[in-house]
Amino acid sequence: MESAILCRKMKKTYGSFTLDIEDFKVATGTVHGLIGANGSGKTTTIKLLLGLLFPDSGELSVLGSSRIGNEAETRQHIGFIVDDASVPSLVTANELAAVLRRCYQHWDQGQYEMYLRQFQIDPKKQYRKYSKGMKVKLQLAVALSHHASLLILDEPTSGLDPLARDEIISILSEFSKDENHTILISSHITSDLEKLCDYVTFLEEGCIRFTEEKDELLETYRLGIVSHQMVADIDSDSIIAKREGSFQVELLLRTEDVPSFLESRRLSLEELIIFLSKGRSAV
């Protein structure tokens, strides 16, 4: 299967928010990041992909299934982490395994226990007594212990300290070494996505601003830092966005538009997103 996930003209409205996805594809064997501010529609998109929400209109296909909410069989191959969907508070990791073993056909108890050890989760402790970080780690352990081919993860690293985040990124990186494994991961911690993703989709106010291959995206733009006077020396057509400081001006330009006299550098994914967000002034 070429596309693990496919969305076309998918719309969902509730309350005052509308999600409008014109075209979204996640190719099998890739790690695809979903970036956006809180409220931009990342969680809504993910819930739609897990069948927890139903689209008002449009096409949606996950691992070949166009009715993911109603096809339990397809969900056998999906590991997930979503906000609002969680493990019972009174249950322990061991008890959870006893339940999931009877639900997932390919449940791997050995792998699960390995992750519990690695994450230092006490298998006899009730879920409600876990720290925030441990809660996410347990959900990740579950997601990785049933031989899933698709991981759909909503903010799996938020609330974690840098060391824990790095640990999780490494584990996900390991998972993605298999060409049949696909990951869709949403986060507002852009630096995590920068390390992990092959593709990046930027969501803003319910719409996709762009989908790009990550390295190519970072190659397309350069950051030039100049004095206020020097701005005039630069062709205003080539300035995509700028940030005026008290002592300098930061300019976003396309790599090929950078004049030879201007020293420039690549931007991090985070810097780029900040520049390209609607709040920034485009010249």
Binding site: V31, S173, K195, C197, D198, K214, E216
Partner: peptide
């Protein structure tokens, strides 16, 4: 190294 292993180790995309 496979393109995937290299990509993951260098933390860049598999396409690259």
């Amino acid at each position: 190294p496979s393109i995937r292993a290299l990509a993951k180790e260098l933390r860049i995309s598999v396409i690259t």
